[in-house]
Write a protein that binds this DNA or RNA. Structure first.
Lengths: 252, 252
DNA sequence: GTGTTTATCGTCAAGCAGACGACTATGATC
DNA sequence: GATCATAGTCGTCTGCTTGACGATAAACAC
C-alpha cells in the first residue's frame, strides 16, 4: 500500500477536559455553557481544537489554563503548589458524535484542589462547578429545581469515564492528594476519598492506613484547626505515587 | 468563538495495534515490516487509517482481523472461543511523530491466545511474533545475533505502554484468560502470568487463589495431560471479570 | 466547667498471602 | 514392571492487613 494522500479522510481533532474537584463534600466537574450550535445553551465539557503544531498534552494543558487558570503538572513530578494533575483519559471518535463534521476528541482528566468560581472568557454565568451526579442524571431536576438537560455531544459518557477513572485510581495511587491544597490534614484527605467514592470511611482505620504507608505523607510540622476540633497535623504529599497494598473501596 | 471551519487544521487519524500473545513462555507482540518509507524495512506495529464512516473501535477490529484473522470480542461479553480481547490503549499525537504529515494515532491493545504464524497480506516474512523485550531493546542484538533496529515511529513507546497496561490489568481482572484457549488448566493460566510478569509464581498458592475466587474459573469436567505430569482439570473463564482482592505481583 | 467536634492511639478477631511439606496421577526410562 | 521425572492438588503455619470499635486528647462554643 503506497503512500497516497487521498487514501485517508481528514479529521478534526479536539481535546475535551474532565476537570474534577471536591467542593462542599461533593465531587464536582467543570461545565461550560455552549454559546453556539449545535447544543447551543446546553452545558458541555470545556475543550477545543488541537492546533497544528501542538502536542495533545500541550493542547489539554492550554485549555485547562484558559478555563481555570490552572497550570498543569508534569506527571513525573509529585503534586505541589496549586498545579493540577492532568492525564489522558480516552479518545472518542464515533462518526456521528458531532453533527457538523468528523471530530475525534482526545479526552483528558484533570484533578484540582477546590478553586474560586471559574471563568469562561470572563463570563461567570457560562462556567460552573456542578456535582457530577447532577451532570450525569439525564433529564432530571437539579438541586435548585431547575430542569437539567443532558450534557452536549457524548460528554456525559466522557464525564462518566473520567469519574470512574478517578474513583479507581485513588485506590492504588496517591492521586487523591491532587484534590487537596499543598498542606492538608489526614481528615481532609479522608473527606476527599469520601466525596469521590460517596461512602463513609472509618477515621481511625483511614488514619492508620495513610500514615502507615511509607513515603505517602510527609509531616510538615505544622498543625491546623481549620476543620474544628482538636488540632490536626499538616502533611504534604510524599514521593510515593503508588499505594501498595491499595486503599480498599468498601463494597457497594 | 463562532464556528469557523478554517479554525482547525486537518489531521490524519490512524489506529495502531499492540497485539500480545504468550508463546513458548514469553510475552510476544505482533510486528510487521514496513514496505515503504518512512522507516522502510523496519519493524512496526500493525495499523492503518481510520475510514471516514468508521468508529475507532471498528477500525481497530478491522485491522486486527486483517492482520491476524482474529475476531474482536465485545468487551462486555466474557472471553470465549478464539475471539481476542480488544480495548483502547492511548492516543499519540506528537506533531513530529510522522515526518510526512500530522497523524494522530489511537493505539489499541489486543490480547490473543497463541496463534499460528501471522500473515501480512499473505507474506509471512513481513509479519512475525517477537518477544517484547527483543522489540523494546534499542539497538541491541536479537536472539539470532542479528542487529535489532528500534521500532518505527514512536511504536516502541506505544508497545511499552501496552505491555505495562497488560501487566497491571491482569492483576485485578480476569484478562489473563484472554491469552488462553477456551479450555485451559490452572497451570497454563499460571504460566501466562509468569510470562507476562516475568516472574515465577508458587503453583500451590496460585492454585488456591484462582480456584478460591468465586466466579473466576468454571470447571468443564474434563481433564488433560497435554502439559505432562498428573492430569489437570480443565476450566473455562467464569463470569467474574474483576479479581478482588487482586492477584499480587511479586515485588521486583 | 460542660458539651461538641475532630484527631489520634490501641486492641482484637478474621481473612489473606507467602513459604513450604506431602501426596497423587500421569508419561518416560530402564 | 519398577523407577523416575513432571505437573497437579490439598494442607499447614505464620505474619500482615483489615474492619470494628473502645479510649483518650485537644481545641472551640456556651
Amino acid at each position: 500500500m503506497p503512500y497516497d494522500p487521498s487514501a485517508f479522510p481528514p479529521f478534526a481533532v479536539t481535546v475535551d477536559l474532565v476537570v474534577l474537584t471536591v467542593r462542599r463534600h461533593a465531587l464536582c466537574a467543570l461545565a461550560v455553557r455552549r454559546g453556539e450550535p449545535p447544543f447551543q445553551g446546553r452545558w458541555a465539557l470545556p475543550g477545543g481544537f488541537v492546533r497544528a503544531d501542538e502536542d495533545l498534552s500541550q493542547a489539554a494543558a492550554r485549555e485547562l489554563a484558559e478555563e481555570t487558570g490552572l497550570r498543569a503538572h508534569d506527571p513525573a513530578v509529585p503534586v505541589q503548589d496549586n498545579g493540577a494533575h492532568l492525564e489522558q483519559l480516552a479518545t472518542y471518535g464515533d462518526p456521528k458524535r458531532d453533527p457538523r463534521m468528523r471530530v475525534v476528541s482526545v479526552a483528558h482528566l484533570a484533578l484540582a484542589p477546590d478553586l474560586p468560581a471559574p471563568r469562561a472568557g470572563g463570563d461567570a454565568s457560562n462556567a460552573r462547578w456542578a456535582p457530577v451526579e447532577e451532570l450525569l442524571q439525564q433529564g432530571g431536576y437539579g438541586r435548585d429545581g431547575e430542569p437539567v438537560a443532558p450534557l452536549a455531544f457524548d460528554h456525559a459518557q466522557i464525564l462518566a469515564d473520567g469519574v470512574e477513572r478517578a474513583r479507581s485510581k485513588i485506590e492504588y495511587s496517591s492521586l487523591a492528594t491532587a484534590f487537596c491544597p499543598t498542606e492538608f490534614t489526614v481528615g481532609e484527605l479522608r473527606r476527599v476519598y469520601e466525596a469521590v467514592w460517596g461512602v463513609a470511611l472509618d477515621p481511625r482505620n483511614f488514619h492508620r492506613k495513610v500514615t502507615g504507608t511509607p513515603g505517602f505523607l510527609v509531616p510538615t510540622g505544622g498543625t491546623t484547626t481549620r476543620q474544628g476540633g482538636r488540632p490536626a497535623q499538616l502533611f504534604r504529599a510524599g514521593g510515593a505515587t503508588l499505594l501498595n497494598p491499595p486503599m480498599l473501596r468498601p463494597e457497594v
